[in-house]
């Protein structure tokens, strides 16, 4: 039994171990912090899809994933990106996604950009709308400020007319 296990371990190429992390989900901030160690490895990035899908000429696309305040570009085939329907912006919290792929600290294929070349994507949670209620105190401030500006303009005009009348 021990011999079989040893044979199996020897049969598996060494880079299979070297080129992958334990595939637990990482944030973009932690990937950025550990970029040298993770370079060339298979990683799983977890975060919010933001902006939009930016298409490339090779039937691929760029997806930006935001987590812990850092956004990281993910290059992936368009069909893999299809499940993402909501992207984060002022009005929307984007889909929560988990993408797995090879992390490149300076991608030779993309002019040295730091990116992940994804091979799989999973939508963990669908995005939602963000609410931005109008703050009435700001409207009140605007009214008061316009009142002051109007009064000042009126006073200035009266003063000018008085000077011209003299």
């Amino acid at each position: 039994m021990t011999l079989i296990a040893a044979a199996l371990i020897l049969a598996v190429p060494a880079h299979a171990f070297a080129a992958s992390t334990d595939l637990r989900s990482l944030s973009a901030t932690s990937i950025l912090a550990d970029r040298a160690e993770l370079d060339g490895m298979k990683v799983t990035l977890h975060g919010e899809a933001i902006g939009e899908l930016l298409l490339t000429s090779d039937d691929g696309a760029w997806l930006s994933v935001l987590s812990d305040g850092t956004a990281l570009g993910v290059h992936l085939p368009r069909d893999i990106a299809e499940p993402v329907t909501r992207f984060g912006d002022y009005e929307t919290t984007g889909d929560e996604v988990r993408v797995t792929g090879e992390f490149r600290q300076a991608c030779d294929e993309h002019g040295g950009d730091m990116d992940i070349h994804a091979t799989s994507l999973e939508v963990v949670a669908t995005g939602t709308s963000r609410q931005h209620p109008v703050m009435m105190w700001k409207a009140g401030l605007a009214v008061v400020a316009f009142g002051v500006a109007g009064a000042g303009t009126r006073y200035s005009r009266r003063r000018r007319l008085a000077v011209e009348g003299e």
């Binding site: 931005h132 209620p133 409207a139 401030l141 002051v148 000018r160």
Partner: peptide
């Protein structure tokens, strides 16, 4: 249709005009 933001700029515009007009009163045009 960013109404909350529109109010931010109404307030900003009002504050700027009020401050500017008051400063302008210091001397004639």
């Amino acid at each position: 249709g960013e109404w909350a933001v529109a109010v931010d700029y109404l307030a900003g515009l009002g504050v700027s005009l009020a401050a500017g007009v008051l400063l302008m009163l210091a001397a004639p045009p």
